[in-house]
């Protein structure tokens, strides 16, 4: 298990924030920059893209156009981006946890490492464990005890088998030898509703899903190295002494293979500036998420570490 290396890489990448301002001079886009979002408008990844578009207005000479191409767990958009003209005018913004797991589970030709080059990371979506506010379960330890007392009786919600929430939750349960029945729901909002309405006992959800619902839903722990700035009261699993692989979903910009390295480093530098802009932070904070900039190389290292950590879980899912 490469979890330790993964922890180190993520920590290092978190500290190392690089600014490559000089390279921007070599990238002179003349046509609008199209960002393909492989999800519907209004979702988490889409919110990041819209924030890029808004913050780029004063910082890039061309407009940034968001193109939503939902379908096939994000594959439809990825295929569209991989077949676009390799001139760097059409790039992909993907929720990489989902992209990675889909590509591993379905053994697709496209993956974060095949057919694409990472330009830069602009954000991160984190997984959290949540229970209804009225639940007798008040802590992760309570949950473990309850699951041990009645194996196979607790119900938990996620947003689809093989997705990052299912993978994280199942790994957590497996590592402690717990049994519980998972119930897939369509989308984060539906899974959250199942928690709010006490249809299920707990759920693995994006931490941002709890924003504004603090009175109805308690987030017991977050999968991350550090506490979330927007939810400082939620401890990390590591703090509580639970060993959960650090699966998150880095929001990464991709260019298809064949795009010039110069163009890529130009966009990378522009993104560093955009992500640091106050209006970018404001827009993504409204959705309960945070900006997080990493260069393409740093992002690739982090995703590789995540892939190594998730491989045994995915293999177990495939054989089931």
């Amino acid at each position: 298990m490469d979890r330790r290396t993964f922890l180190q890489t993520t920590a290092m990448a978190g500290i190392a924030v690089s600014f490559a301002g000089a390279a921007a001079a070599e990238w002179k886009p003349r046509r609008p920059l199209n960002i393909i979002v492989p999800y519907k408008a209004g979702g988490g990844t889409d919110a990041y893209a819209r924030a890029v578009s808004a913050a780029a207005a004063d910082r890039l000479p061309v407009p940034v156009v968001i193109v939503n191409k939902p379908g096939a767990s994000g594959m439809t958009g990825a295929i569209a981006a991989s077949t676009a003209k390799p001139d760097g005018n059409t790039i992909l913004l993907h929720s990489t946890g989902s992209f990675l797991f889909t590509s591993m589970l379905k053994e697709t030709e496209l993956s974060p490492f095949d057919g694409f080059q990472m330009i830069a990371q602009i954000g991160n979506l984190k997984v959290s464990l949540a229970v209804p506010a009225g639940s007798p379960i008040k802590s992760v330890q309570d949950l473990v005890d309850a699951a041990k007392a009645s194996p196979g009786k607790l119900r938990w919600a996620h947003t689809g088998r093989g997705g990052r929430f299912h993978v994280t939750g199942q790994t957590f349960l497996n590592s402690l030898g717990l049994e519980a029945v998972d119930v897939p729901f369509k989308g984060g909002a539906a899974a959250r509703a199942a928690v709010l309405g006490e249809q299920v006992d707990f759920a693995f959800l994006g931490i941002q899903q709890g924003r504004g619902f603090e009175d109805q839903m308690t987030r017991l722990a977050v999968v991350a190295t550090d506490r979330d700035e927007l939810a400082p009261n939620v401890p990390t699993f590591a703090e509580l002494g639970f060993d959960v692989p650090l699966v998150s979903s880095p929001i990464i910009l991709y260019a298809r293979d064949g795009v010039d390295a110069e163009i890529i480093s130009g966009i990378e530098a522009a993104m560093a500036e955009i992500v640091a802009a106050p209006e970018f932070a404001e827009l993504v904070n409204a959705k309960g998420t945070l900006p997080l900039y990493r260069t393409g190389a740093e992002a690739a290292a982090a995703v590789q570490a995540m892939k190594d950590a998730a491989t045994p879980v995915i293999d177990a899912l495939k054989t089931n």
């Binding site: 408008a41 919110a47 504004g212 619902f213 009175d215 109805q216 827009l283 409204a286």
Partner: peptide, 17 residues
Amino acid sequence: AILVGVFLIHGIQIGPT
């Protein structure tokens, strides 16, 4: 679902509050 997005784009937090 699209309306939720519009609320968020305009910085209005949907929810009990």
